[in-house]
């Protein structure tokens, strides 16, 4: 084989490998979704949304777990996102390039990919040990800690995208920075900030590890934030590893619900962002 052929062969071989890698990645996603749909639809019934989690061997639904997940995710976002948005505002508007802001940006990026089980241990030490028992509020706090880095990052990025001219015009009219931020920057960056919120909800609603030793689990419906609360991820964890067929079916149904919710959230975040970019472009 001459040199030219060898180069062409090498080129073809590596490009084929790269195509294969892409197909493998896509196949993984397809296999995952297929398993979820085929197993999950089998366990799906109206009972899922109307009945509580059953004792071993019994029949039941996931109502209390769905409710608990919704409550804790909502609380987590309500606590976490204002902090994230405000901190992002500080980095984008006040601190810009100070040494403190650089440090905060760095720490935030570390928190963004820090293992969530560590956050669970942190909240356990700080809240659960102090209170003396597991509780829904501890679970919500753990989720809030996970939501902060996501909202902070997107808020800062989106505020930086607002044209400087808009800020200057507001300042020229005599507005103080707080007024400019609230009346000009936030509205201009609104869909971007909402994207961040959606991504944060998607991130925390599937989290299991930080809830294991904060919210724990509860077989019954509970409205008490000061007591353990059922939640979908921990129920899936517990039921999937159990030997009971009914429980496993419920786990698959729960897994399907959670995945569809999160994928829908991520897709709408992306659509929102694409719309935003189109707006900018025109």
């Amino acid at each position: 084989m001459n040199r030219r052929m060898l180069r062409k062969f090498k080129n073809g071989a590596f490009l084929t490998l790269s195509l294969l890698a892409t197909l493998t990645g896509l196949a993984c996603l397809a296999a995952l979704l297929w398993t979820l749909i085929s197993h999950g639809l089998g366990g799906m019934s109206s009972r899922i949304f109307t009945q509580m989690t059953p004792p071993p061997g019994g029949q039941g639904g996931l109502l209390n777990a769905l409710y608990g997940s919704a409550v804790m995710t909502l609380l987590g976002i309500l606590i976490g996102s204002p902090i994230g948005v405000l901190a992002g505002t500080y980095l984008a508007e006040y601190g810009r390039s100070s040494r403190l802001s650089t440090a905060i940006r760095f720490i935030n990026d570390v928190l963004l990919s820090a293992p969530s089980i560590i956050v669970g241990l942190f909240v356990y030490e700080v809240v659960v040990v102090r209170m003396g028992h597991f509780s829904a509020i501890a679970g919500a706090l753990a989720l809030a800690v996970l939501a902060i880095p996501v909202t902070l990052r997107t808020t800062e990025d989106m505020l930086n995208l607002v044209p400087v001219g808009m800020k200057d015009s507001s300042a020229a009219l005599g507005a103080y920075p707080w007024r400019t931020t609230l009346s000009v920057l936030y509205p201009a960056a609104r869909s971007g900030i909402v994207t961040g919120l959606l991504l944060a909800i998607a991130r925390i609603s599937g989290e299991t590890a930080p809830l294991l030793f904060t919210a724990l689990n509860n077989q019954f419906w509970s409205n008490n934030l000061n007591a353990p609360m059922a939640n979908l991820p921990v129920v899936i964890f517990q039921f999937a590893l159990s030997p009971y067929k009914d429980w496993q079916d419920l786990a698959w149904a729960g897994a399907l619900i959670i995945t569809v919710t999160i994928l829908l959230l991520s897709i709408s975040a992306r659509v929102l962002l694409a719309l935003l970019q189109m707006q900018r472009g025109s």
Binding site: G25, C28, L29, A31, L32, T35, L36, A202, S205, G206, E207, T208, A209, P233, I236, F237, A240, A251, W252, A255, I258, T259, I262, L263, S266, I267
Partner: peptide, 13 residues
């Protein structure tokens, strides 16, 4: 999207 799938789903799968 594969990155958005929560880890418990990968576990059960």
């Amino acid at each position: 999207l594969l990155a958005a799938v929560p880890s418990i789903i990968f576990g059960i799968w």
